[in-house]
Amino acid sequence: MRRNPYYLLFRDLLGGLLITLKTLFRKPVTVEYPRERVKVYPSFRGRHALVRDPETGDARCVACLKCVQVCPSRCIDVKYEIDEKTGARIMTQYNIEALRCIYCGYCEEVCPVGAIVLTEYFEYSVRTREEAFFDKEKLLKNWDEFIAKYTEKVYTNKFWNLKGIPDVLKPAPKRKQLEVPVKRG
């Protein structure tokens, strides 16, 4: 292999040295986390919560089991009873193993009524495995904690109603914008 004789000037090596020297005088990009914080954007996928309906005071889940089917890591477990008078399903248990969850957000997307949500709250490190196992009460409590710090009047999530899907393919509650009014006590 013949090299260009200008190779002997080591322009590439000196250029590399110059780049690092320039970077030395640049402002560092580090965010010193506990002291300064990055802005969390809406639709960030953080801690799980079951949306508490302000009218009934209970979860909005209708136990359709779509989230159980779609979950890639199979971390959702839903138990339900059938009301013998109306034939409707009533959700009794809703368990999420947060340590197995991969935070893909499929459950949010597929839920027809917008009952499950991955909130923007992300600082929830735990010391035991049991603390990361969310049952129905904990999930509802998560929602209350999240909503207490939420400043706007109406909460909606981007994944509840994705853009670009024709209305025909959506379940009936999703054809209009899904919104939860935030009630402050």
């Binding site: 970077t23 030395l24 640049r26 560092p28 990009v29 010193e32």
Partner: peptide, 8 residues
């Protein structure tokens, strides 16, 4: 080294 990699 940190400053050359834009760290602190």
């Amino acid at each position: 080294l940190g400053r050359m990699q834009a760290r602190l």
